[in-house]
Amino acid sequence: MDNIASWIWVLIPLAAIGIAPFKMWLRLKEKQMDSQTNLAAEKSAQYAQHMERVEERLRVLEQIVTDRGVETAAQIEALRDRPRTLTDVSAGNR
């Protein structure tokens, strides 16, 4: 029993000394997690900005299509399909 008691007095200071590196490791892991969180937040903000630009472009395209865009495209195609006359070519109309 004396042998175990003497070892306890040795193990207690060793445990106290071993806590310091563990605390340092915990601080390092906390900093790593903070860094990863900040990086994820930054990427999320960039993605949100990108999606806003894509949505704005989509709104413009929707507006073009719904605001006579189809009719305009049909008119352009009709002009392309129309046979050219000699007067059109000499006048510079294409």
Rank of each mutant, 00 (worst) to 15 (best):
A40C: 06
A41T: 14
E42I: 14
E42F: 10
E42Y: 06
S44F: 07
S44Y: 05
S44A: 12
A45S: 11
A45M: 15
A45E: 13
A45C: 11
Q46A: 14
Y47I: 12
Y47R: 12
Y47F: 05
A48C: 09
Q49H: 10
Q49P: 11
Q49T: 14
H50L: 15
H50D: 06
H50C: 10
M51D: 08
M51V: 15
M51C: 12
E52I: 11
E52R: 09
V54Y: 05
V54G: 01
E55H: 09
E55N: 09
E55P: 08
E55K: 10
E56N: 13
E56P: 05
R57M: 14
R57S: 13
R57T: 14
R57V: 15
L58D: 02
L58R: 11
R59T: 13
R59C: 10
V60P: 02
L61W: 03
L61D: 00
Q63K: 06
Q63C: 06
I64W: 00
T66V: 09
T66W: 05
R68N: 06
R68G: 08
G69F: 07
G69Q: 11
G69D: 06
V70T: 04
E71H: 03
E71R: 03
T72S: 06
T72R: 08
A73G: 06
A73Q: 08
A73P: 04
Q75W: 04
I76G: 00
I76E: 01
I76P: 05
I76T: 03
E77V: 03
E77N: 01
E77P: 00
A78T: 06
A78I: 07
A78F: 03
L79H: 00
R80M: 08
R80S: 02
R80N: 04
D81G: 03
D81K: 08
T85A: 09
T85Q: 06
L86Y: 05
T87I: 15
T87D: 04
D88G: 01
D88R: 02
V89L: 10
V89M: 11
S90A: 07
S90I: 15
A91K: 12
A91S: 12
A91W: 05
G92A: 14
